[in-house]
Structures are given as structure tokens and as C-alpha cells.
Nucleic acid binder design. Structure first.
Lengths: 264, 264
DNA sequence: TAACTCGCTTCCGCTCAGTGGAAGAAGTTC
DNA sequence: GAACTTCTTCCACTGAGCGGAAGCGAGTTA
């Protein structure tokens, strides 16, 4: 990020992280020069660190000389917040089997929804949040549900921010959104209609833990099903209840690591 | 790892990695002291690094003061070798739907099989390799398939190693194993019977890419189905073919990052 | 209530790991 | 074969990292 010039006070750790983050900005493999540029490091510094990371397996080098994130990194990360994902996986699975629609499990990370799991079939895949991806809370059904049932101060803080518009249908007026959230809380589910991208709509219900909102599960469907998508509510609610039961024993904090770290 | 005393020449990066690796050894959250111990770092050094990692979100801190791997790490790692996993996911999914049995997708990482994906139902879950987990190649069906179709030097190198025994049924005699691998190559699939743990058996077929073995898909079943598990072969082969078709365009190297880094 | 214990946090002066500009190598294009 | 671009190596300087030791604070014992 910061310019290439020497910037004292920058820790090695931050440089390493900057290198790993460089791979978030663009898909696919990066050349050393790309990495140096994106991470704001001098070429030779980038070279040294990249070489070491490659030795450790956190990066891997393709035959053509470009770098990619290595499997070792992925392996390490599998120990992260396995609890919720592992416990919920079969149920998200069932949700897909029962509805035939792309199913999502998401939690809040800061002021965005983070997709923890996603199950979809080989037929049609309405392009939507990928695992590990983030989307704004106000444009997705899972996000709205989480926001609606979050503690007041979280919701208030969110509504005070500038609400990003994704399509012409995204609800970006704070007042209207607040009213919508109230309605969601009353009816127990949220929907969207082409608010992230044209052609798809979604519906989601909350997953509670010790009385608090912990996560949300939802479906993404092609727009032409928007009128009838509430027919999936019974299944959604049933699956949510099952996940709640399956995770009841696990302390909330350990469910996904405390995402407090990302709450800024 | 290394003793707590000063060990010059140790890079910061290696210390950071040691900290992250500490979480592989034991499930759940770790105290600062635990981390220092497991990573072989002086307490104050561990403290400084852990604090910084927490700031970056790579670690998260629970209310009780213990540390866990943070979601940020998981997010970063989602960019890893997405190609194969993303492309194959719906098919592994189908494999489970069609058979009703726990389905796995695995690749070789060094001299072990690395489980890339796993789909299973909410009913019975025969305890088997978890996503991101590794198992020896000679004790699993997916591993044997990979080994059988790998290049000669890989297979030879593997057979020269000490073959770890997991149960009384694990095949650990190099000669017999070599013969078994030949048979597997001829028949096009591998099976195991209680070779990793009692009570489960497995069957797997290869997934090729540009004529080379790229991955393997398999099923894990309870032992009582061992006699009839070959009935799943047509489905396994069909799904393998679909995955091959779906990944044909992606260069082999980018499929999973080149795992060359882990080939030692 | 004072004296321990245990785990975490902070301090601070020393020093070597990290630094990055520059020069060299290797490969690519015109 | 000269002018690129991209990667790799070198090396002398220096401040980030280091870690022993002292300080804290919450329990626990006596």
C-alpha cells in the first residue's frame, strides 16, 4: 500500500502480511514485481521475503516463475473456527438437497457478511458470494438478517455509514433500511431482489446461539422465483433449528474464533 | 520445537509461522504461555508477535485471554488453490447425493494425501480424514490410487520409506504394496478395508489431467458394506470424468498451486 | 491481610537480521 | 546484438527485533 520508499516502523510481520494480501486483489498467480508493487515493498525486500515464504510452503512457485498462495497456508487455516463450519456443514448440505438451490452459511465480520460455507449443484450457479468472500450487509439477505437481530449499537453504527449501492435495486436509504430491518425482525426472515446483482434474489433466516444472533443461512435463486421463494421458509427454519441444536454446546466465542478482532 | 534459548539466524518469518503452527498440535484455544512453549520462543518475543498477529486479525483473542487462529487467516487462505476445489465441489457434492456416502476429494502433498474437500450427510459420519487433514498414502484408497498412477520415481521413493501401521489391517510390506499398486493401476480403482481405523472401508478412483494423475475421489463406508462397495464404481467413474472435463482447461500447475513446494 | 504463585505485560539497551540501492544475470523483444 | 524487462545476488548500514528482568494483577494459601 504505502509507497516503495523506506518507511521505518514497519514490522517484518506487516510486510509478510502485505505480501499475502497482494493475492486478494487479483486472481491468479503474481510475478515478483507484481507482489512488490501491490505490497508496497522494494523489489529486493519482496524477493527475500517471498523466497522465504516459498521455502515454508506459504507461497508456491509455478514453473513459469510466478507465485501463488501455497497449500500450506490453506492447511494452517483449516484449523480456524472449524467449530461452526464443521458442525453446520451437513445441515447446509441438507438445505441444498431439500431445496435444490444454492445454500449459504454466513456470519458477521466487522461491517460485512463473511461467507463461511456454500453448497450448490453442478447445474446452474447463480453467481453469488463465494466461500471466504465478503459482501455488504445491507445488500444480502443473510446480511440483513444478521443486522436485524444484532444488538442495537451494531445496527445503529451500520446505518450511520455510507451505504454502498450495487444495483439500482439496492436499498441505500438509512431510514427505509431501518424500517425494513424492523419488519425482518418481526417476520423472522429477510429477502433481497436483485440488490447485489441482476438476475438473482435471496432469502435468509437467523441462526441463534444463547439468545444472540450467531449466524445466518440463506438461499440464492434466479429472479424468476422471487415471487415464490417464501415456500422455502419451513425448510430454512427447520435447518436453522438443527444448526442451533448442533452448536448449542459450543461456547459462542469459540464458534468462529471471536470475530471481535474484525469488529473494529 | 527448538529450545527457548537465543538461536541467532532465526528469521522473524519463521517465528511467525511457528506461532501459527502451534495451533496445529492441539485443538482449541491456547494461552500465551502455551504458544511460547510450542513454538519454542521466549515468552516476551511470543508476546510481541502474538499481539501484532492479533492486531492484524491472524489471531483472535477470546474473552478469557486465550488465543485462536483468526478468521482473517482463513479468509486469506481461501484464495489458495481455489481452482480445483471450486471446479470439483459440485461434483463431489453429486457424488455424495448419488451414493449417500461420505465423499472425498484428495491430492498428493509430499508423501501424504491431502483432503481438499469432503461432503457428508447429517446422519452417520464414519470418522475419516477431515478437510485440510493428511493421511499416509498407503492406508487410504484415495492415496493408493494416487500412488498407483503417479510417476515411477514417486512410487519408488514412497515404497522405500518406512510404512506406518495404523491398524492390524494396514498393508505395510513394500513388496505386497507394490503388487497391490500394480493391480490398482490395472483395474482402475483402489479399496481399503479398516486400514486407517476399524469400522470403515473405502474405495477410490483417479482423476486425471493432461494424462497425469491430478487428484482422486473416493467414498468412505462402514465396514459392513465392504463386500458390495464396488457397486459405486460406475458413479465414481462418471463423476471423475466430469471433474476431468471441468478442469481440462485449467493448467495443471494452477489447479492447486504447484504442490511441488511440498514434494520434498 | 500479608505472603506466595502464576500468567501476562511492559521496559530498555544491545545487536544482528533485515534492509534496499545498485550491479549483475537471465531471458525476451525488436 | 542492442535495448528491453524481470529476477537474483551483493553488501555495508542501522533500527526492528530481541529477550532478561522487573512490574502487575488476579487468584490462592497461610
Amino acid at each position: 500500500m504505502a509507497g516503495g520508499s523506506r518507511e521505518p516502523g514497519r514490522t517484518v510481520t506487516s510486510k509478510v502480511l502485505a505480501i499475502l494480501e497482494a493475492f486478494e486483489q487479483s486472481r491468479g498467480a503474481l510475478s515478483l514485481t507484481d507482489i512488490a508493487e501491490k505490497s508496497g515493498l522494494p523489489l529486493s525486500t519482496a524477493h527475500r521475503l517471498v523466497t522465504e515464504l516459498t521455502d515454508w510452503g506459504l507461497l508456491s512457485r509455478e514453473p513459469n516463475g510466478r507465485y501463488q498462495l501455497g497449500i500450506r497456508l490453506w492447511e494452517l487455516a483449516q484449523n480456524t473456527g472449524r467449530q461452526l463450519r464443521d458442525a453446520a456443514r451437513p445441515f447446509v448440505q441438507d438445505l441444498f438437497s431439500l431445496t435444490g438451490e444454492t445454500a449459504h452459511l454466513a456470519v458477521r465480520a466487522g461491517h460485512e457478511v463473511l461467507y463461511i460455507d456454500r453448497v450448490y449443484g453442478s447445474r446452474r450457479v447463480p453467481r453469488a458470494g463465494r466461500i471466504g468472500g465478503r459482501l455488504p450487509m445491507h445488500a444480502t439477505a443473510v446480511g440483513k438478517v444478521i443486522l436485524a437481530f444484532e444488538e442495537d449499537w451494531v445496527r445503529d453504527a451500520y446505518l450511520n455509514r455510507q451505504l454502498e449501492r450495487h444495483t439500482a435495486h439496492t436499498h441505500v436509504d438509512p431510514k427505509q433500511l431501518a424500517a425494513e430491518l424492523t419488519r425482518i425482525r418481526e417476520q423472522g426472515y429477510a429477502t433481497t431482489l436483485e440488490e447485489v446483482r441482476l438476475g438473482s434474489c435471496s432469502i435468509a433466516v437467523p441462526v441463534f446461539h444463547t439468545g444472540r444472533i450467531g449466524a445466518s443461512i440463506g438461499l440464492v435463486l434466479p429472479t424468476d422465483q422471487a415471487a415464490t421463494m417464501t415456500r422455502h421458509l419451513p425448510v430454512l427454519r427447520g435447518i436453522a433449528a438443527q444448526i442451533e441444536r448442533a452448536t448449542a454446546r459450543i461456547p459462542l466465542e469459540t464458534l468462529l474464533g471471536s470475530h471481535a478482532a474484525l469488529t473494529d
